[in-house]
Design a protein around this nucleic acid. Structure first.
Length: 760
DNA sequence: CTAGCCTGTCATGGT
DNA sequence: GCACCATGACAGGCT
């Protein structure tokens, strides 16, 4: 009820704005797309919507104005891109239907595939118009569209509350334009297959004359639409539903245009070839980016950042778009059966379109509930969404829901004005949005949750980082683990390292006596290696018998020496010959052999006839060490050597510990990356769920609106024609029936029109 | 023969 | 100032 009030007041304003827009139509789209924030502010004024808009703006800015520009351009191009003919809402639907889009793309080159979705922008304009036209033809009445617009506004606000943006409105504007422009007959009808519809929609968009600059569709087409004026409420509702998706679609369109537009342009069925104003490439870029994103996600190889960046700015930034499109199918596993193209589309567009624009369409596959979704929606989407796929994605969905009605009616322009940035999108990180969008698209496109989950899993698994490395180290670590286990049986690497350090500190003798030292002994060259390995995976350690043996070896510096040398002074091979040393130690190699393998210090010690082992030299505490030196009358050369041996030995252990720590750090980081990816996937899932719930809510809203409207009767008991009246929500919670012709401003002034309180 | 890895050693800085 | 530790850099050995 409160919503109704808000909607009513705000709705009036928006409505007025929309009307003005319709009348003006001024390159609102362009502004919106490019400068959405200012326009929005101006038009909408500081409303909750604004905040949302701001989000969009942020996105736009973040994602890159370039995007918007490109998008806008794209939209124009897309519209221009004749290839795409959005016959009906189908076009919209198509947009919504990722599959269709994918298919288009998959066509890779097929203009159809290319599509349009991408062209979300264009589609927004073009599609919407077409949708309108078609709808108009269907519905027949602009009035209906007005109502739709009103509804849209309301819904939009609700969406806004939810976090949706108004971008959809922009789309509506475009749609109007597109409709006007669209001479092409509305081919599609609901009956049309999604793909066909989608194609049609695309074509329509393309066909629709779009301002190259603004990307807005030319009103010329309107007449055609106008012809189809009479619409039933249901039709209006349908249109509305269709429109909803638009926001999303618009985004989609934006993408599609880039890649698809070019290719498709030639093929456009209706074909008004919009001049390739916007470089089709840009849309493709978007697609490519989406692809890349998807790929990244899928493979996990790509770093999150990259993917995000790509996604966010991808449209503008990426030049790869073209390539991605080609690849899409293969790359995306997401699309269940959809052609590769579809997948592509789904990726970028899907995210946007699905969310923002048409529920019906988007969801239609899944939900199937969406009745009308297809046509009307597309146009809307094109306008605002194109700029930011991501942003549009979240917000647009919500907003888009309502747009359709507006679009349907002549008011489409108005809707465009409403475009607001989706707060929703802002919430999500670009990268998140991208991925999410992809996932959403996949979901919407018909991916089962299971599939989505798989994708997520894949993403998780496929970390860009070489998790493998971690694994690999881990495996080796098993050996090391033995060492650690020996020391303290501590499983964790950290513990291990510490233990190792301790071991070093302990004297060789002590070490022999003490198990820990033994562990320390692991530091022996060979041992050290094991330790490293184990270090990574301490867990494995424990189980390994060999490790136990290793633990007992205290050879590290003196391993052999400790065993033998203590008395012999023979520094057994300490150093590098790790394996050999071990084997020797086990084999009890002859002193000669030991000598060969003995470290330089050991040899020097022997050469200098140092009376004690290097192990002692290195590991004895300072006091004991000093006492030991005091006991023996040693020459300066011997003392210097002993001190060097001690220094080097300690440094060696320190180096080993340091390296272990490095490995641990790397492993931990890898683990952290994995964890973060899991979290990311989880968040994406949650987002998808949230989007679904939003769709459902929107659908419910629409159905309720229709229900209420259909039940309304005037004083004479006659139903209000949806084409002529729309429901407005009063600030006081009352619901007013407003004639669509009345401007929002007027409405705001005079809610006088027939009012009937209807409280929800 | 080369590249990569491992290890030891040195130099440096911090505690 | 000494002892110890940590770490980057380098070099040698090994595969």
């Amino acid at each position: 009820m409160l919503y109704l009030k808000k909607y009513f007041t705000e709705g009036l304003i928006q409505f007025t704005i929309l009307l003005s827009l319709i009348g003006v139509r001024v390159d609102v789209d362009t502004y919106l797309s490019n400068q959405l924030p200012p326009l929005r502010e101006i038009i909408l004024g500081p409303s909750s919507a604004y905040t949302q808009t701001q989000f969009h703006n942020l996105r736009n800015t973040l994602d890159g104005y370039v995007h918007r520009d490109s998008e806008t351009v794209v939209s124009t191009s897309s519209q221009s891109t004749p290839s795409i003919t959005l016959d009906n809402g189908a076009g919209l639907e198509d947009v919504n239907h990722p599959n269709a889009t994918l298919a288009m793309r998959g066509g890779g080159g097929a203009p159809e595939s290319t599509y349009n979705l991408n062209t979300a922008d264009s589609s927004l304009g073009a599609v919407a118009p077409e949708g309108h036209q078609e709808q108009g033809s269907r519905d027949g009445n602009d009035d209906l569209t007005k109502e739709d617009i009103d509804l849209i506004d309301i819904l939009w606000r609700q969406d806004i509350d939810l976090g949706a943006g108004r971008e959809v409105f922009n789309y509506s504007n475009r749609q109007k334009e597109s409709e006007e422009e669209k001479p092409s007959p509305c081919e599609n009808k609901e009956g049309n297959e999604e793909q066909e519809s989608w194609r049609n929609g695309v074509n329509l968009q393309a066909a629709q004359p779009v301002d190259g600059e603004t990307g807005e569709s030319i009103p010329e087409q309107l007449p055609g639409i106008g012809s189809q004026t009479s619409l039933s409420l249901q039709e209006c509702l349908r249109l509305l539903e269709a429109t909803f998706p638009f926001g999303e679609e618009s985004e989609v369109t934006s993408f599609s245009p880039t890649g698809i537009s070019n290719e498709e342009v030639p093929s456009t069925s209706q074909g008004l070839p919009l001049a390739p104003q916007l470089p089709p490439e840009e849309p493709q870029l978007d697609l490519e980016q989406q692809w890349q994103d998807i790929m990244a996600i899928m493979e996990l190889q790509a770093m999150e950042v990259n993917s995000t960046s790509l996604n966010s700015s991808s449209s503008s930034d990426n030049g790869t778009s073209g390539t991605t499109e080609s690849n899409p199918a293969g790359s995306f596993e997401l699309s269940t059966g959809s052609t590769p193209v579809n997948q592509d589309v789904s990726l970028h567009q899907a995210s946007l379109p699905s969310c923002s624009q048409d529920f019906p369409q988007m969801f239609s596959p899944q939900l199937g509930s969406i009745t009308i979704t297809p046509r009307t929606v597309t146009p809307r989407v094109s306008s605002s969404n194109s700029s930011n796929i991501n942003s549009t994605f979240g917000a647009t969905n919500l907003t888009g829901i309502f747009l359709p009605p507006l679009i349907n009616s002549s008011s489409t322009n108005i809707t465009s004005t409403t475009i607001l940035p989706d707060p929703f999108g802002t919430l999500l990180e670009e990268s998140m949005l991208d991925e999410i969008s992809l996932l959403d698209l996949a979901m919407e496109e018909g991916f089962s949750q299971a599939q989505a989950s798989q994708l997520e899993d894949e993403l998780d698994s496929d970390s860009g980082l070489s998790l493998d490395s971690s694994h690999s180290p881990a495996s080796p670590s098993s050996s090391e683990t033995s060492c650690s286990s020996a020391a303290s049986s501590s499983s964790t690497s950290a513990t291990f390292s510490e233990e190792g350090a301790v071991g070093y500190s302990t004297d060789s003798e002590v070490a022999t006596a003490e198990p820990e030292e033994g562990a320390v002994g692991g530091y022996q060259p060979g041992f050290s290696k094991l330790c490293r390995m184990s270090y990574q995976d301490p867990s494995q350690f424990h189980g390994l018998p060999q490790l136990d043996g290793v633990n007992h070896n205290h050879t590290y510096n003196l391993p052999l020496s400790s065993a033998f040398s203590e008395h012999q002074d023979l520094p057994i091979s300490t150093g590098k010959k790790t394996v050999r040393d071990k084997s020797h130690s086990k084999l009890q190699p002859h002193p000669d052999l030991l000598d060969k393998h003995a470290s330089r210090d050991e040899r020097r010690a022997r050469a200098m006839k140092i009376p004690f082992s290097n192990e002692k030299i290195i590991n004895l505490p300072v006091e004991e060490f000093n006492e030991l030196l005091a006991k023996h009358h040693l020459s300066e050369a011997q003392l210097a050597l002993i001190r060097d041996i001690r220094r080097r030995g300690k440094n060696k252990m320190a180096a080993q510990n340091c390296r272990k720590r490095k490995l641990d750090t790397i492993i931990n980081l890898e683990q952290g990356v994995q964890d973060l990816r899991r979290d990311k996937a989880r968040l994406l899932k949650e987002k998808m769920e949230f989007i679904r719930s939003l769709r459902q809510m929107k659908q419910k809203m629409q159905s309720l609106y229709q229900e209420v409207f259909t039940q309304l009767r005037d004083e004479e008991g006659r139903p209000y024609p949806p084409s002529e009246y729309s429901l407005q929500y009063g600030a006081d919670g009352s619901v007013l029936i407003m004639p669509r012709g009345v401007t929002t401003a007027e409405q705001s002034r005079k809610p006088e029109k027939k009012q009937k309180d209807k409280k929800k």
